[in-house]
Simulated scan of single mutants.
Amino acid sequence: MSDYNKQLKAFTVLLRAANAVQEVSRQDITENGLNLTEFAVLELLYHKGDQPIQIIGKRVLIASSSITYVVDKLENRGFVQRLACPDDRRVTFASLTNAGLVFIESIFPKHEQKVAQIFNILTEEELDTFIKLTKRIGLQNTNL
């Protein structure tokens, strides 16, 4: 197999694996009445605390035009609130409400177990290698 064909095969394998993992994750998350983006925002706020709304889109890889809609939906469900930045009127933070905290704490352990199941076929050494190689591919291609 030529290098070009190996690279195409690696690309196809990576996309198929990512799609399979995303589908398992999507199914797990939708059982809780959320979509992937809503869950990603809740998870970010849970692990990183209050975040400027303008930054959330970059952190969870969604368009900045969509983040307002997602935060609105989570706010309407009582999971998130907007807080004005005391130092800069142009900045608004998203923050978990008590209801949002209780909700994410109730569903996150099951999600964490599901993710562990996805990767449990790899040894610890293979997982370290996978992380290293995937990061390397991602970092190299952010400049293309």
Results as ranks from 00 to 15, higher is better:
Ala20Phe: 12
Val24Asp: 05
Phe103Asn: 03
Ile121His: 10
Val41Tyr: 01
Arg77Gly: 03
Leu61Gly: 06
Arg82Ala: 04
Asp28Gly: 07
Gly100Gln: 01
Tyr4His: 09
Leu34Thr: 00
Asp72Asn: 15
Asp128Trp: 07
Tyr69Ile: 14
Ser64Asp: 10
Phe130Lys: 05
Asp88Met: 08
Ser65Phe: 10
Phe39Lys: 03
Glu105Gly: 05
Thr142Ala: 08
Ala63Arg: 13
Gly49Asp: 02
Glu38Met: 04
Leu101His: 04
Lys58Met: 13
Lys58Leu: 15
Asp72Trp: 06
Gln22Met: 09
Val71Ser: 02
Leu15Glu: 12
Gly33Asp: 05
Ile67His: 01
Pro109Ile: 07
Gly78Tyr: 09
Leu34Asp: 00
Ile62Cys: 10
Gly49Val: 09
Lys114Tyr: 05
Val21Pro: 08
Gln117Gly: 05
Glu75Leu: 06
Arg136Gln: 12
Ile121Met: 06
Phe39Thr: 01
Val115Ile: 14
Leu8Met: 14
Leu133Lys: 13
Thr129Glu: 13
Ala18Val: 10
Asp87Trp: 15
Asp128Val: 09
Glu112Gln: 14
Ala63Cys: 06
Ala18Asn: 09
Tyr4Arg: 14
Pro86Arg: 13
Leu14Asp: 08
Arg16Pro: 01
Leu45Met: 05
Pro86Cys: 04
Gln81Asp: 08
Leu144Ile: 11
Thr129Pro: 02
Asn141Ser: 12
Phe130Met: 09
Lys110Ile: 07
Phe119Arg: 07
Leu34Tyr: 01
Ala99Asn: 12
Thr37Cys: 02
Ser2Ile: 04
Glu112Tyr: 14
Pro52Ser: 02
Leu36Gln: 07
Val71His: 00
Leu139Glu: 12
